Amino acid sequence: MTISVSTPTWALDASLPPLMIANLSHLGLIKIVGEQGRTFIHGQVTTDIVSLAKDQWRWGAHCDPKGKMIASFRTFAIDDALFMLMPRDTVAIDLPQLQKYAVFSKATLTNASDELVLLGVAGDEAKAFVEARFGAITLELTVTEQGTIIKDAERYILALTPETAADIAASVESVFDASAWQAIEILAGYPNLAASHANQYVPQMCNLQAVNGISFNKGCYMGQETVARMKYRGGNKRALYILQGHTSLTVDLETALEIAMEDGFRRGGQIIEFVQRGNQVLLTAVLANDTESDAKLRFAEDEQSSLSILPLPYSLED
């Protein structure tokens, strides 16, 4: 289903409008069904799937045997089906990796990205808007006939039937493009890993432990030894940071970052997710985890650019 979208007009450093609805077309879904579906995924990912309640959702990561993330995701269940929500391009590379091992289990995995329409709702009026259509939303996850509501603090992800999504889109003045939601996720310090960054980072390098995306008590899973060693023996030297600034470049995920040192600028990290509006840019990036909060960064190809570090909304301490 196609929803007409508008480009956000507010500045990246400005407050959201009272009601912001975004078409999350950049996200996709993997669907897992079958009597061994949950136990199979439980043995593949960093988060505890077996204990996931029907009114819960969680962050998690799927790693390769070396403990490097293939994908980061939110997971939740609708009736007997388990879903993994992640960037749409990442579905295309993660699903075949999971299917390769699922042949030994009574589990069926499919790309369900086109089965449901994903909308994000945020702003001061978000709660009233969602509850006017779906009733009181007090749980992390609420499943209704019209769709599923993921509550994340004071914002919501709606996984809807096409008919319900069309009704909602028709009832509001504007539905914004995915960048409106990505800016919110970036400011939340969330680890949305694109396909181009697969097999590069251990989960702690993208702060998965800080958003409850790693269980250190669940037992074995793919890459578990590396992830556990990072926690109990140390050795992780990188973390996810939030950066904001300006540039004359058109930024992409491969745009190089530099950090100011005593003897000049040096290569400083890699962009994980970004939003750009004109010369303003907001992004998450993996940097050295001893980077000072007042560090000065820029884009390598734009010496006049400037990036500063914003505070994370969570702690990285164990």
Rank of each mutant, 00 (worst) to 15 (best):
E292F: 00
D294E: 12
D64F: 11
I186P: 10
K66N: 15
D94N: 15
P313K: 00
Q276E: 06
I49C: 04
G235E: 09
L24I: 04
F265W: 15
I157A: 08
V251C: 08
I93A: 12
L12W: 01
P87R: 14
N111K: 11
A295D: 14
S105L: 10
K100H: 11
Q56G: 06
E185N: 13
R238V: 03
D318H: 13
M261V: 11
C63L: 04
A128Q: 13
C206G: 06
G37I: 12
D114G: 04
P65R: 06
D114H: 07
E163C: 05
W59H: 14
E262W: 00
L282Q: 10
S179A: 13
T291K: 04
T144N: 02
K68S: 06
N289Y: 01
N217I: 02
N207W: 08
T148W: 02
D79Q: 13
N289R: 11
L95Y: 07
L307S: 04
V117I: 15
G67T: 06
D177N: 15
I150P: 00
T247H: 01
N289V: 05
D177T: 12
D94G: 05
P18R: 02
K237E: 08
I242Y: 07
G223A: 03
A77D: 03
A77R: 13
P162Y: 01
I186R: 04
G120D: 06
G213C: 04
L118M: 13
K237G: 01
Q44S: 05
S293Y: 00
A239G: 13
